[in-house]
């Protein structure tokens, strides 16, 4: 079978890695919020779409290239996340996990349907940075390459921020021991606002790059959030780097299932992986033991 030719396998691998890095950027933000606040943000993928739509609007009405609009959209969504955390999410932190689950579910329903009201349900995309880089038999999609590389850079930038800077260390301190952090003089509420804003800004960055790769509509988020859940379960809930590896893994698995099976099976793969992992380890592969 021609499918086993090395170039095709290599193409599948590259496609999977690039898509996977985008998943990773999205999922690590979700996991960061969970780690610090113990809130599962069901609306996380909607912030990705918010980023995508902002980039689309900037492109259509002001002719701004998506790579440039990153510099406008990401800070804007950071601001929105900051305000939303303060006004809404803060009230469900520390409440039962299912309360925050239902609250963010409400946010998601509102965002999706507001999107439908404003942008209607037809699919949008931004035709920029199209085409491929061809190396012999290999063709690598330009927008995917740029998006994949940027996603890796952004994720590691946030990782370094958490590891090295004083503020980042404060975030990790709050994740591990909020009470101790308070005693040490850390403004825990501010850290939570920062975390949430940072996470949704990462999602928005993923969304901006999405505009050049996929067609999206206001309800596209459902596909992505499902994948994110699979990723954070695989990578371990609350584990920032775990989500990164999980994302890349899912991207590759999907590419190969699509290549050797059908794309319809690839759509269900994330869920099957999730169920499998939960069955083997009911708290996730690298799950946090204290999450009841």
């Amino acid at each position: 079978m021609a499918l086993f030719e090395p170039t095709i396998l290599l193409q599948l691998l590259i496609a999977g890695l690039l898509t996977g890095s985008l998943y990773a950027l999205l999922a690590s933000g979700l996991n960061l919020v969970f780690g610090v606040m113990r809130v599962i943000n069901i609306a996380h993928a909607e912030f990705m779409l918010l980023g995508a739509y902002l980039a689309w609007v900037l492109y259509v009405y002001a002719n701004v290239h998506p790579l440039l609009s990153l510099f406008i959209v990401v800070p804007a969504v950071f601001g929105i996340g900051w305000v939303l955390e303060r006004t809404l999410i803060e009230h469900v932190v520390g409440r039962p996990l299912l309360t925050s689950l239902l609250a963010t579910y409400g946010v998601s329903i509102i965002m999706v349907n507001a999107g439908l009201l404003v942008f209607a349900s037809d699919f949008k995309s931004v035709p920029q940075l199209q085409g491929a880089i061809v190396i012999g038999e290999l063709a690598i999609s330009k927008p995917r390459l740029v998006a994949g590389v940027l996603a890796v850079i952004l994720t590691f930038a946030v990782y370094l921020f958490l590891e090295i800077t004083r503020l980042g260390k404060a975030v990790r301190a709050v994740a591990e021991h909020p009470h101790v952090a308070t005693i040490c003089g850390i403004d825990v509420q501010r850290i939570r606002m920062l975390t949430f804003a940072l996470a949704v800004a990462m999602a928005a960055a993923a969304g901006v790059m999405l505009t050049m790769i996929y067609s999206f509509s206001p309800d596209t988020g459902a596909d992505f959030i499902q994948k994110c859940f699979a990723i954070i379960i695989i990578g371990g809930m609350g584990n920032f780097l775990g989500a990164f590896y999980g994302g890349v893994l899912l991207g590759v698995v999907e590419a190969f299932v699509g290549g050797f099976g059908t794309t319809q099976w690839a759509e269900a793969v994330a869920y099957l992986l999730l169920v499998l992992v939960l069955l083997i380890r009911p708290t996730g592969l690298k799950g946090m033991a204290d999450v009841k």
Binding site: I40, L97, L101, Q226, Y271, L278, T283
Partner: peptide
């Protein structure tokens, strides 16, 4: 447990559809 159950059920619909 609760949250994991919720996550596991969230995608069930989609898998049934596929």
């Amino acid at each position: 447990r609760g949250p994991y159950f919720a996550i596991a059920m969230l995608g069930l619909n989609e898998v049934a559809r596929v």
